[in-house]
Simulated assay, not measured.
Amino acid sequence: MGKQSTAVAATGTWVDPDGVRRPSGEVHGWRQGMNQTLCGLALSRSRLSRFPHVSWADADPATGAHADAVAEVCPRCAAAMGVRRDSRPWTRHDPRP
């Protein structure tokens, strides 16, 4: 169960011009067959909508294709997917001897 099998649950829904439901608001990671998100929220009690057709990678506001209305990504779900909070986008080119 990696990033490919993780779908999205979100606080809101919007419909794109093609008539497909998309996530909006705060998104959480969700694995099909589970009744809770990766961070432990119960789907029914939290009133989260499930989006089994949207993968976790597509819900990322920076790079995702289905993230037009996503306002926030749950940091606990992102950590469960392996995203580090202190990850640096840079690399050292001239290391010291």
Rank of each mutant, 00 (worst) to 15 (best):
M1P: 08
G2M: 09
K3C: 07
K3H: 12
T6C: 10
T6H: 02
A7S: 13
A10P: 01
A10H: 02
D16M: 07
D16N: 15
D16L: 09
D18Y: 05
D18F: 09
G19I: 04
G19P: 01
V20D: 05
R22Y: 01
R22A: 00
P23G: 10
P23I: 10
P23N: 11
S24E: 09
G25F: 01
V27D: 00
V27F: 03
G29L: 04
W30C: 14
W30P: 14
Q32I: 14
Q32L: 12
M34R: 14
N35Q: 11
L38R: 07
G40A: 11
A42R: 13
L43I: 15
S44Q: 15
S44D: 15
S46F: 02
R47C: 04
R47Y: 06
S49E: 12
S49Y: 05
R50F: 00
F51Y: 15
V54L: 08
V54C: 07
W56F: 14
A57F: 04
D58I: 00
A59N: 03
D60S: 14
D60G: 05
A62C: 11
A65L: 12
H66C: 09
A69R: 15
V70E: 04
A71N: 06
E72G: 00
C74A: 12
R76Q: 15
A78K: 10
V83L: 09
V83P: 02
V83I: 12
R84P: 00
R84M: 05
R85P: 04
R85M: 06
R85T: 12
D86L: 11
S87Y: 03
P89S: 04
T91C: 06
R92M: 14
H93P: 00
P95E: 13
